[in-house]
Write a protein that binds this DNA or RNA. Sequence first.
DNA 1: GCTTGCGGCTGACGTAACGTCAGCCAATAC
DNA 2: GTATTGGCTGACGTTACGTCAGCCGCAAGC
Lengths: 252, 252
Amino acid sequence: MQTWSTAEVVKLTGVTARTLRHYDAIGLLTPAGHGHGGLRRYGRAELLRLQQILLLKRLGLRLDVIAEILDGALDEIAALERHAIQLAEERERLDHLAATVEATIRQLEGKQTMTPETWFDGLDADTQARHEAEARSRWGDAVVDAGERAIRAMSAEERSAIPATFEDFHRRLAALRDAGAEPADAGVQEVVEHHYRFIEKLWGTAPTAEAYKGLGALYTDDPAFNATFDEVQQDLAAYLREGMNAYADANL
Amino acid sequence: MQTWSTAEVVKLTGVTARTLRHYDAIGLLTPAGHGHGGLRRYGRAELLRLQQILLLKRLGLRLDVIAEILDGALDEIAALERHAIQLAEERERLDHLAATVEATIRQLEGKQTMTPETWFDGLDADTQARHEAEARSRWGDAVVDAGERAIRAMSAEERSAIPATFEDFHRRLAALRDAGAEPADAGVQEVVEHHYRFIEKLWGTAPTAEAYKGLGALYTDDPAFNATFDEVQQDLAAYLREGMNAYADANL
DNA sequence: GCTTGCGGCTGACGTAACGTCAGCCAATAC
DNA sequence: GTATTGGCTGACGTTACGTCAGCCGCAAGC
């Protein structure tokens, strides 16, 4: 029976000698035997098996899965079906990623003059871009795009008034808190309602309960936001968040 | 100045403690200082940096690249643009892979329901039965039945003529190739069209461009197929594959 | 007989980004 | 005094090999 040495198999198939040794080491492709000095010798059956391995590998399957298929422990069609599903998921993930990266680039390039620097009050352009990326991954592109349109539709006056409006909310909330009001109390909820309406205006669409609560969580979780609130009053972000949660539960 | 312990940062950001230690170990995020017992302490600056790290990481950048960007050694926009290109390439690769996998699955299905041992040597009756049961539960009866109906709609003569029909294609292609014809030439494309119609008949449905190309790739990649072609003429599979690609591009 | 070269061999380390122990330490709570 | 909390520092495992380093057997040339 004809046999082939490692070097010959390398020439025939294009795989590297190291790969053959690796497949031997993990038991995926055991040589037919060993010649003088322990030299590996492959027979026809091993070459055929190697061809199958390479085919399945080209399809992106993992070596352990390939081994299970070739040894009959796994159904080939079922394994490929699962693999196809994984490929589709991965592709979708990449699509989403690519969109977010593109948005980030556009933002960094400043080609989009959407939110003036005043928007996030104190955040530099770089941080702003990060926030847009975060917003897109949190709420989706549609929401952020709508927000951009809404902001552009505002007059310059309205736009420049944004930070002051937020500051006004924050100060009123801090005052209520100092007075001992709970987040769910009517006075606080009134301010929160104004806040909600204002966000709706900024976003160009009415936030859902989840989105609004998510925004509240962002206020406390994001150190940049949190710091902005802390400047007005310690832990004000958490106070507002509770107010937003209560508002969302009661009205959205 | 306010500082946070590892556990606090974990709660604030959602990353694991192990990750924070890892980032410290590779120098990506060094704590502001160490408290009693070597406990890590993070300040506002570190939280902001961590925030940036997490955003870039969500965009799929590698940690060493992130470090270079944050330390100013790399231009952020340029790095993201390169990254976007890589994402697009990876996506395309997955597209291609998915199409090939789908075609392979179809072909394996065809192996079992449509063309018996005469065309493909390799699956015994038991394996075939398992595959069919698997196929029915996974793809639904409709698809498998359609294929079987298509086969059954053939007369016994037609069925037994399947291998001969393929062989006829192969011989005609080999002859054209010997005569110097390119895969895209009209004469070859005419044979390929017959081949396409025949596959359509066997599958019970018209292959898409991707599926048809995937089948061509399978002819060259699968050793069982390739060997069948090689018996007629050396590297005939690759020749047919090119013809199939040209046909798909022009007509599907 | 000795060296050189070829072809191959067996470890062993490195890769990306951590997860998952194992074993130890310090401060606090009971 | 001890259990608990919260943290610490190694070190191994993960995937599919690439890349040495060091050694061995066999042949040809000197």
